[in-house]
Amino acid sequence: MGTTLWQRTWRNVARNKAMYVMVIPGLLYLLVNNYLPMLGLVIAFKDVDFAKGIWHSDWIGFKNFEYLFKTSDAWLITRNTLGYNAVFIVVNFAFSIAIAIFLNEITSKFFSRFYQSVLLLPYLISMIIVSYLVFALLSQDTGMMNHTILPLFGIKEISWYNEPVYWPFILVIVNLWKNAGFLCVVFLAAIIGIDKEYYEAATLDGASKWKQIRLITIPLISPVIVMMLLLFIGRIFYADFGLFFQVPMESGPIMNATNVIDTYVYRGLMQIGDIGMSAAAGCYQSIVGFVLVLLSNYVVRKINKDQALF
């Protein structure tokens, strides 16, 4: 029945000409900017020799991937990467949704704008600078924690950069602090987009504010939440390099708590600078993310077909 499919497609094109034209620039761009370079993933399977050129270099199968698995740290970095990102998603989503909802409740225009601007501040500062700010707090010699805050409670000074137990918390907090503003803007836009009539009707029915939030706001922004969730799951095997590399200041004793796949790859390849091996890491990360997203999209589709991405 090939012809009917063609006919159907053609009819759809004829009826929605404008929409077909509209997507062209975007798709063209993705083709050039994203899909064309993807051909380069072959580098991950090659022993690149520039005398032969990239395309004609020898195939070496999965040899470039070996270093990711051969180390005794393979389990550790996998666990850290997935574990931290999972916690980040839960904590960041919970907080930024709460912030967005509260922001929406603020009636004073001045305060609403003030909070919004201020919340975005951390998102604007580069991770290297953030690492200095964290250092300002935690430095053993001169940090504020050890100098002013801990003595107030009569606690002895702590060697923050040498004690791995604190770092899961520090990293989660820094990540939240840095990214909550960004996520919150997304959710706020979704909340603002909700038709005010729903709330008016609910108020007339005597529904309390809490009830309105629970029964109107959350359900109506849930498509955005689910979509964002899927996007973040797709990147779950990519760690925020800046956060994990800069903020711990490369301190060795805490590395079991701060080493993730991206930092591992960076440190490992610093000297060798092998493009095949770094391409292999990217490839591995993408595939894990891809599998996880397919799974979660499948689950979402089972629950609510409309909210699935594809």
Binding site: K63, E66, Y67, K70, T71, D73, S159, N162, E250, S251, G252, P253, M255, N256, N259, Y264, V265, R267, G268, L269, M270, Q271, I272, D274, M277
Partner: peptide
């Protein structure tokens, strides 16, 4: 290059221990 898999792993071990040991923090 013949041992780059091992070099990548060893570099990570060095990064984890060298500074702390060679500054006496541990």
């Amino acid at each position: 290059t013949p041992v780059k898999t091992e070099v990548a792993a060893v570099q990570n071990v060095l990064n984890q221990y060298k500074m702390a040991l060679e500054w006496g923090t541990v």
